[in-house]
Design a protein around this nucleic acid. Structure first.
Length: 693
DNA sequence: GAGCACTGC
């Protein structure tokens, strides 16, 4: 362990070539005397994008597709839609849609723009995200998630309500963005060709906004579309590199934290780490070393931040440090784009990130730590320059930066594609291999996903969407296998229970156990567990929470009941946020299946029905115990163990179905339920026909 | 007997 007290330190080389553009700070003290409206107007006019308003509107008028490259702080997301509205792009009754990869962004930006326009949110300016529609017939500027626009396209394939669609943050290249880009390209072509339709549609104006410096990829994809650059506004960030490569990243991060704390001026420190485990161990180390310092130097507050952290703990990072104190935030990638923490002046970037990888051959998902891309390193360092000049300490030599990939591999090249294919089939795209993706997904991954959809009955022999199964599956906002499970559940008379199962499985980690309460948690969690498996255990948790909530509502009213539920969750080591999310999903899906005409039914406590239905639905995830106690996945021969958190880990049933297979230190199947081997041949003959001996 | 970046419908 490093001995902080003895002055272990790192030498950093500064290089200002890779600096951010320098601009003057935008604080204006005169504005204290102005009204809020005047202030807003003044801020709007001072944005870098304001000087090119006329030109941008003109370019959109002249070009059906335009690429806008705008760096952080340019104001493109809030201003451009307003310019277009004022420029008359809604005159023919069409509306302006702006897509965002994240829900919070859609909501906060819409609120801001409504304020700027002095409009009530949901009227002229609105937003629409899953579970929440804040739009009305009078909405002209609509912010939404890109996933939601894809869903809308299922109902209105020409997106006829829209005169302009702006795809924001396109450089992030999420699966949804990539699918959307392909779809929009198609829609645009169709809308300008089909002039003989009864109601002629105006051509669709398309604007792709990206923060990456490389607009060429987008421009080429859209047939040489014009690209314009808009200045950003960021404070300068000094980039510093270590002189030598680091062998131990955690140690280097630790040393750098203290180096900044002891030698640099006021300002909080943001450290990018790969995951919860790393964060928790470095948290301990910082605390330990802090105690060794003279008391005057101990004024450092530590805040962990990762997505599965309960929200009340997450919110703590936003409280400013008391005078004389410095905050150090130990965060995952969540702090890269999703969460912006005020007060950060120093960023420590070890240059690593944990990413999901997916092997189409084995169907195994794993999380691996890889080097960041250049774009990602730039994004991270930018977090130091939001409120004033900052410094970014990269824990690797400058020569290594040059060797990094320019940008992160688009998600579509490293994920399971069955949902993408199902959605596109529902949009009438039958030839997935030939679909004009900006970046083609792996051919093998496409074939595997087609096979899966075929085995689930969603696709016909001709690779067309089947009716009604495929149609119904495409309408549900779930993974294809989960949608199929619901459709079958209505035949197995356990739809109610399966709704709970898929809702609970759709959210991240229902249980949250702090490190120091491991023992205590075991007995508590055990009270929910079913010997038959994890699926039924999840049903028990959900039912218990609903029962608690309903009982409390009648006794104490809604508000008090929600508060009591939070306490109940804490006592039972359940993540309240995840449970709430599961409840939202449950309600949404329930409405969906009812509207689809599926027969609502409950098996009560007859969980045999539910287990049979699980076998019939997740037959590709069936595994058989081997003599050595490991399990063999019947469909592909993969060997795995039951995850230690599973309730059937000890009882080791002969035959199981599982929800997912993940690779960590070993191959593990998670969310496992005991089934009867003979059910497979009976319920999934397309896969497990019995041999005629 | 282990440990799961982040989104989205």
């Amino acid at each position: 362990m490093p001995s902080m007290a003895t002055g272990d330190r790192r030498n950093f080389n500064s290089n200002n070539n890779i600096n951010h553009p320098q601009f003057k700070p935008h604080g204006d003290h005169k504005s204290d005397f102005l009204s809020r409206r005047q202030k807003i107007e003044q801020q709007r006019r001072s944005l870098p994008i304001a000087s090119v308003e006329k030109r941008l509107v003109e370019e959109v008028r002249k070009n059906d597709t335009l690429i806008i490259v705008g760096e952080t702080g340019s104001g493109k997301t809030t201003q451009l839609p307003q310019y277009l509205y004022n420029g008359g792009f809604c005159h023919n009754g069409g509306i302006i849609g702006i897509t965002q990869p994240r829900r919070v962004a859609a909501v906060t930006v819409a609120k801001r723009v409504a304020e700027e326009c002095d409009a009530e949110l949901g009227q002229k300016i609105g937003y629409s995200i899953r579970f929440e529609d804040m739009t009305s017939p009078s909405t002209k500027i609509k912010y939404m998630t890109d996933g939601l626009l894809l869903r809308e396209a299922l109902l209105d394939p020409k997106l006829s309500r829209y005169s302009v669609i702006v795809v924001d943050e396109a450089h992030e290249r999420t699966v949804q963005t990539d699918v959307l880009l392909g779809l929009l390209k198609d829609v645009q072509k169709n809308r300008s060709q089909n002039s003989n339709e009864v109601r002629k549609l105006n051509p669709l104006k398309l604007i792709i906004m990206s923060a990456s410096l490389d607009a060429r990829g987008f421009s080429e994809y859209f047939g040489g579309a014009k690209a314009v650059h808009v200045m950003g506004r960021q404070f300068p960030v000094d980039i510093l590199y270590t002189a030598q490569p680091e062998t131990d990243c955690l140690d280097a991060a630790l040393v750098t934290i203290f180096q900044i704390h002891l030698e640099e001026g006021p300002g909080d420190i943001l450290v990018f780490l790969s995951g919860q485990e790393e964060i928790e161990s470095i948290e301990g180390l910082v605390r330990e070393n802090l105690k060794k310092l003279p008391e005057a130097n101990q004024k450092l507050l530590i805040f962990p931040l990762f997505s599965s952290l309960p929200s009340e703990k997450q919110l703590k990072v936003f409280t400013p440090a008391p005078v004389g104190f410095r905050k150090v935030i130990l965060a995952t990638n969540i702090a890269e784009t999703s969460v912006t923490i005020p007060g950060v002046k120093y960023v420590i970037d070890p240059g690593l990130v944990k990413v999901r990888s997916y092997s189409p051959d084995s169907g195994i998902e794993s999380l691996i730590v890889v080097k960041t891309s250049k774009a990602q390193a730039l994004q991270r360092s930018g977090r130091a320059g939001r409120e004033g000049p900052g410094k970014c300490f990269r824990l690797y030599p400058e020569s290594r930066f040059e060797g990094l990939d320019d940008s992160t591999v688009p998600e579509i090249k490293r994920c399971n594609l069955s949902n993408v294919i199902l959605q596109l089939s529902a949009l009438g795209v039958d030839d997935i291999i030939g679909f004009d993706f900006m970046e083609k997904p792996d051919r093998m991954a496409v074939i595997r996903s087609l096979e899966l959809l075929y085995l689930l009955g969603a696709l016909t022999d001709e690779k067309k969407l089947s009716d009604p199964i495929g149609q119904q599956m495409a309408r549900l906002p779930l993974e294809p296998n989960d949608s199929k499970a619901l459709i079958l559940a209505s035949q197995f008379d356990c739809l109610e229970e399966m709704l709970i199962v898929v809702s609970m499985l759709s959210v991240e980690s229902i249980f949250y156990v702090p490190r120091d309460k491991l023992e205590e948690s075991r007995t508590v969690i055990k009270s929910f567990s079913s010997p038959e498996g994890d699926h039924i255990t999840l049903v028990n948790v959900y039912r218990a929470s609903i029962e608690f909530l309903e009982k409390n509502k009648t006794e104490n009213g809604n508000e008090k009941a929600e508060k009591n539920l939070r306490k109940w969750c804490k006592d039972n080591f359940i993540n309240n946020r995840s449970l709430k999310h599961a409840r939202d999903i449950y309600n949404q899906i329930r409405e969906n299946v009812e509207r689809m005409g599926l027969k609502m039914s409950s098996c009560g406590d007859d969980m045999l029905q539910l287990r049979r239905c699980l076998a019939a639905s997740y037959f590709l995830n069936a595994a058989l115990k081997q003599p050595d106690g490991t399990y063999r996945v019947l469909a592909n021969g993969q060997i795995a163990e039951i995850h230690p958190t599973s309730v059937v880990r000890r009882s080791k049933p002969e035959c199981v179905v599982f929800y997912n297979l993940v690779q960590t230190t070993r191959n593990y199947v998670r969310n496992v339920t005991r089934i009867d081997y003979l059910w497979l041949a009976e319920l999934a003959p397309q896969c497990y026909a019995l041999k005629d001996d």
